[in-house]
């Protein structure tokens, strides 16, 4: 089982008395592209934030290569540097240029030399097609471009798994395509990805595993063919039918 990267066991999370996640179990293997779908408020984003320890789970464990990262005394920053995250609201550093955004983590966290970090950043910025904009500040570029830079920033850290928290939900419809095409090519290159998304076409065509969440629990999971082609549960069918109609 050495290709197992993440294993989530009995994960629960409550905000006060409000229980957002209940007894979540799932695993991420190397090369997996997992899509998490579900209605708003079903706990998809909270699950992703728990995995990156931006939220601390109330109970349960998250095993990263067999080591529980939720336990007390775990070096959370070191763990996070192996698990990249792309946010719905981009969260690029506003005080830095596009290039600096992709360099700072490598230099400060991975202790790479500046030149090496720059070459590495340029490599990923080229992949997302942002090399012409390396001197721009985040406020000067469009939402789709920001998200592509955010992906390059996460990639530049050479993460083992990349988490996407609704990466296209804050974008205008015409910019969704450019971000999805970048994600699609990443998936083809074998990047391990965990994507919370409302883009059903992306979930169906790109991922090899789909998780449908409803009311804080995993309602149904399987391959895209199983889940989209032959959903077993009524909730899943209801949810998917809303997307089929349009």
């Amino acid at each position: 089982m050495e290709d197992m990267i993440l294993q989530v066991n009995h994960l629960s999370k409550s905000f006060g008395s409000h229980e957002v996640l209940r007894d979540i179990d799932f695993t991420v293997k190397k090369g997996d592209v997992t899509s998490i779908i579900g209605a708003s408020g079903s706990g998809k984003s909270t699950l992703l934030r728990c995995i990156n320890l931006l939220e601390i789970p109330t109970s349960g464990e998250i095993l990263y290569h067999g080591k529980n990262v939720v336990a007390k005394g775990v070096n959370a920053p070191a763990y996070r540097s192996h698990v990249g995250m792309v946010f719905q609201s981009f969260n690029l550093f506003n005080n830095m240029t596009v290039l600096e955004n992709c360099i700072v983590g490598q230099v400060k966290v991975l202790k790479r030399g500046r030149e090496e970090a720059k070459a590495h950043a340029m490599q990923y910025l080229e992949k997302v097609g942002m090399t012409p904009y390396i001197n721009a500040k985040p406020r000067q570029i469009s939402g789709g471009q920001k998200q592509r830079v955010a992906i390059a920033r996460a990639l530049a850290m050479d993460p083992e798994v990349l988490l996407f928290d609704e990466p296209t939900s804050a974008l205008d419809p015409e910019m969704v395509g450019e971000v999805l095409s970048v994600m699609r090519s990443l998936a083809q290159e074998g990047m391990t990805m965990l994507v919370v998304t409302h883009e059903m076409a992306f979930a169906r065509d790109v991922s090899n595993h789909v998780v449908y969440m409803n009311g804080g629990v995993i309602c149904e999971e399987g391959t895209p063919e199983e889940l989209f082609g032959n959903p077993q549960k009524q909730e899943t069918r209801d949810f998917l039918s809303r997307f089929r109609n349009n």
């Binding site: 931006l54 920053p77 996070r80 981009f90 983590g105 920033r153 850290m157």
Partner: peptide, 9 residues
């Protein structure tokens, strides 16, 4: 959050 996510202390 962006800074934390790339492993900054």
């Amino acid at each position: 959050e962006g800074a934390k996510a790339i492993g900054m202390t």
